[in-house]
Amino acid sequence: MKSYSLFKKDWQSELRTRYAINALAMFILVTISVILFSIGQERISEYLTGGLLWVVIFFSAMSGLSRAFVSEEERGTTMTLHLLAKPSTIFSGKLLFNVLLVYLMNFSIIVLYSLLFDSFIIANWGLFFLATFFGSFGIAVSSTIIAAIISKASAKGTLYPVLAFPILLPLILTLLELTKFAIDGKTITEAYVELAVLICYDVIMLSASYMLFDFIWKD
């Protein structure tokens, strides 16, 4: 409940300041436009379209999700949070906020992608939905803990994608594989191993983040 209150505070603050939403929306529009301009009239393969989808998602996440902690640090309100709740509550609240942001972001990207790219043809939407659901959660968890780590650094903008890349690489590779399966029309049973890897990644990142956050949070 306390985490939900923190999430509510963050969401209300976001609606007023538009720290993350504007950054995400602009990034999504710019990257999709650049891809559209660069392919021109050429028809690219379904696999390549699927791959580019995750490139857009990865970099969009990098542009907006760090705000959860960075905005607190930049405004100087980190100490206020310290005095309000215990570390696990703060992490849960920030995670809830990032989860909502990632789901909204990925939903918008997929809708735009489906409308603008003719070669984005998914044969098994059920599998693609499952992959995106667990994948988005993994992106949200990893982005939240990385945001907490880099919020105290001086070169936040550069450090975030650099640190996120190796942490998100196993997740992105699995998601690319699952997207390929969904394009090929494979069943969920056939993609069982990759889905299990995805869920394991989420569980491991979530547990590790909760254990690590206490140490990151205190100066």
């Binding site: 209300q12 007023r16 300041t17 405004r75 100087g76 309100t77 100490m79 206020t80 005095l83």
Partner: peptide
């Protein structure tokens, strides 16, 4: 003086 509350609220 360095404790900062939320300006947008």
């Amino acid at each position: 003086p360095y404790l900062i509350l939320y300006d947008e609220f």
